[in-house]
Amino acid sequence: MTYIKPNFRHPNLPVNDLGYRKSDYEGSISTLCAGCGHDSISTAIIDACFESCIEPHRIAKLSGIGCSSKTPTYFLGKSHGFNSVHGRMPSVATGANLANRELTYIGVSGDGDSASIGMGQFVHVVRRNLNMLYIVENNGCYGLTKGQDSATADVGSVSKSGNTNAFEPIDLVSTALQMGATFVGRSFSGDKDQLEPLIKAALAHKGFALIDVISPCVTFNNHEGSTKNYRRTREDVEAMPLDFVPMREEIKATYSEGTTKEVCMHDGSVIHLHKANVDFDVHDRVGALSAIQRCKEQGRILTGLLYMDPDSEDFHVALDTVNKPLSRLSEKELCPGSKVLDSINDGLR
């Protein structure tokens, strides 16, 4: 890997509708291992944000601790970032979102961060339907501490040290569905064609959007005994291809009849789901859960958009907060003043 990122960019690089170049969405150079799946996810995030035309400084990126949680440094360098505490990104993201509902929130977590130490916060942020994109970079192991099994490792998967995992994996996608998640997708870091539109759709969703991305660990979990190595993941993925057409764009692509399903989002954007081996309705929570389970029984990993509720109402709606960000309320709006205090005093006599 290189340690120096060239500053040179071709002068004719395309700009998006806001006039930003893709380079405006990039971050520092990655310090992860060469070939790490996480870097592909970072690239997908960069591309998705560029194409979704979100102003970089209107995005806040948050993470917990672990390899995955290091990645926000490697994308969106013009955005504020917060690398918080292990397993606690959901609470920090919740507070941040409460303070300013106008920004776009991207949280990056890992399987250790979300399925073990942060399981409590994970399920509760799902329940609250916080308006954010929550990406789990799922490699089934703890990379930074050198390859211990995580809670998403499959039964029978062998770790680099040779231990065979005996414990049932936690499936974050199924868990999120059971907790009432309003947008749930799964993808594979090696399938950018699917991941990128999925991220775009998740960014357009109003509410909690989970994307669980299988992202093999090249250093500690890419050997033959692992169920999450590149080769097996590629083979086992039951991919449902999709495209995302934002509301402002005319639908150009045409597909032959019967091969595509259109899924409309609240803002008028459309997701095109292409024909896959597994057929189910993405508005049907129970159907999604059973499709995931059926695939699992066949040793397949179902990827794509698994569930979406187009009528989702986020946490702010539940709390009935004002439209203006709480962080921007004026002193006049916040402080009731001395006359009110005098009347409170009177009531206490």
């Binding site: 948050l62 609470s91 993201a93 919740t94 507070g95 941040a96 303070a99 920004l103 960000p325 962080s327």
Partner: peptide, 11 residues
């Protein structure tokens, strides 16, 4: 965590 996130974001 929520308090810290909110204060970080200006509330």
């Amino acid at each position: 965590g929520m308090v810290i996130g909110a204060c970080w974001n200006g509330a």
